[in-house]
Every structure is written in structure tokens, then in C-alpha cells.
Amino acid sequence: MSRILLAEDEEVLRMLIMDTLEDEEYDVDEAADGKEALDYLQNHEYDLVILDYMMPVFTGLEIIEKLRGGNQTFQGKIMMLSAKSQTYEQEKIIQAGADYFMAKPFSPMKLVEKIEEILNEV
């Protein structure tokens, strides 16, 4: 079973994504800010990390830098959620080391489809 970490500070969105992913029988941990996300990442392995861009303590971008920067070797896939939909913002996110980008607002069904696609590739 694939393991997923979801880091999203908007409570209602987190609920929605958690419920949707658990319905699909993924094993999901949830973090409400950047600090919680990092704690999880230090102690567990994940196939996929879903990060919101704007979060308290550490932003999604800062977490990616910690996972992919320097001599770090994070093996899983990273997906970033963001309302910043301009192309140059997306490029910045991909350049920092994210594998996928999903613009907010997204349809929950689209998100699940995308996740399935990613995890099938792994």
C-alpha cells in the first residue's frame, strides 16, 4: 500500500483530501503546518508528499529545499498545491524539486486521478 503525507493548513481542504484518499485506501498521514510535515518526514518513508505552498512555520517551498537540496536523498514523489497559477511561479516550484504541480482550486476527482497516475509510475 502506498504511503502519502498530506501537508495542508486549511482545515476543511485537509479534511476533504484526507477523506478522499482514505476512500481510495491509501495510507495517509496529515500535517497542518510545515513543522509537523518535517517531523513526519524525518521519521517515516513516503511514496508521495503533497505540500501546500503557503503554510505556517515552513512553506511548501522550504520543505522541498530541505528534502531535495544539498546532499539530501528523498526518494518519493512531491506534489505541490498552490493558488499561484502563473507559469513562472510553477517553473520556480518545479525547479526547486517538485515533481508535480496542481493549481488551486482543483477538483477533488482530478486530484485523485493525478495521484493514481503518479503512484502507478512509481
Partner: peptide, 17 residues
């Protein structure tokens, strides 16, 4: 406001967004 904006669209509340 930012939190509502970020959430409402996905919940299909276009007007609220």
C-alpha cells in the same frame, strides 16, 4: 479571507471564492 478563497473553489463554491 485568504483561507476562504483557497478553500471555496475546490468545494465548488465559485461565488464565495
Amino acid at each position: 479571507l485568504h483561507s476562504i478563497k483557497g478553500t471555496a473553489g475546490t468545494l465548488q463554491l465559485g461565488g464565495l471564492m
